[in-house]
Design a protein around this nucleic acid. Sequence first.
DNA 1: ACCTCCTATTGAGCGTTGCTCAACAAGGTA
DNA 2: TACCTTGTTGAGCAACGCTCAATAGGAGGT
Lengths: 200, 200
Amino acid sequence: MAQAAARTRRTAEDRRKQLIGIGLSMLTARPIHQVTIDEVAAEAGISRSLLFHYFPTKQDYYVEVVRAASRRLLRSAAPDDSPRAIVEGYVAFIERRRTQYVGLFRASGLDDWVREIHDETQDALTVRIMSAMTLTNPSEPVALAVRAWWAFAEELAIEWTGRGRTDRDALVDILLGALDNVIFLADEVRTDRPILPPGE
Amino acid sequence: MAQAAARTRRTAEDRRKQLIGIGLSMLTARPIHQVTIDEVAAEAGISRSLLFHYFPTKQDYYVEVVRAASRRLLRSAAPDDSPRAIVEGYVAFIERRRTQYVGLFRASGLDDWVREIHDETQDALTVRIMSAMTLTNPSEPVALAVRAWWAFAEELAIEWTGRGRTDRDALVDILLGALDNVIFLADEVRTDRPILPPGE
DNA sequence: ACCTCCTATTGAGCGTTGCTCAACAAGGTA
DNA sequence: TACCTTGTTGAGCAACGCTCAATAGGAGGT
């Protein structure tokens, strides 16, 4: 695996890109805490120390790798501004990079910072789809509900494609239908005076 | 912190319970990979070696701790067999042990096995609520959708209570409403011949 | 009280891994 | 050639997960 690539001197930016690229492929297969700095360094054909020169800590390195994946996702889920297009882009991304997505954002052992990036990503998606639905100035319940709906979408998309289903359109239909319904339900909530539960 | 508790000899089961109890409180605040075996041992007033006597590996230890938390959750979310009661029990649990739940199941750095326990737990909840809704023999899309709906419920419950909202009933209403709708939507899908997307 | 046996318990120590630091060297500029 | 910036390295430390042979607490039998 370790391809001692003739130890040539690279520019800083080059090295960073190379290392992040390696991270994207290595951290896809195995969770973070099972991948050592030594392995990454060996794969890049450099010494441990150099990696620490570019990324002060292992976490910093990993964060940048996950950030890179997040950017890819956001790029895929924004072809234009219709809700359907956004959801389709999202689903398409997961179809294409399922293992990577799961490996980087979910399975792996991360501390708060990965969750943080994941949250930021979903926040961005939330904002994006809300504006696509011309939902300006939503109430807190609605905002929370849309946010949680992304969790629903993520889970369903991952499991759906994981079963080898290819009927992407049916999946997208479910997601969009659920989104409408969830917004409707959350919009019923009067923030100031909570609704009383129906008798039964 | 380390209370050297007079080094008395305990029965095996006693020690296990003590250690798991400590885990439940320590691993609540900080993610796993930030808690060392030494700390746990010190807190229990025993040596590192003893902990390895009971749990062959750190992972094994952590797994048992998470399992214990999972059992608690499942106990809380099953007062009786109505869907509303199940959801209310679930929400109540998260209200009560929010940080613990997040710390054990989400934030922390775990390898696959924690995700696995988390999945098992949600599977159990899925089965439970399906039977409560007298949904026997659901199609694959419906099963997947209900499963994903739990992800929605988890996210929304965590965020909802995280904002200090106390209107639990409104939350439960949203969750139950979304559940009905999601089942309806997924039930439309003909597993064999995928639905074509509507024109717009 | 004493011996015996089981096992809970420990301390010393090994290997891996994240991380530091002082020094080296590749390439551009004068 | 001399210099200077900075990409690059190797040796080494500290923390941590984990092993193993040995110790000691306590219950049961005599």
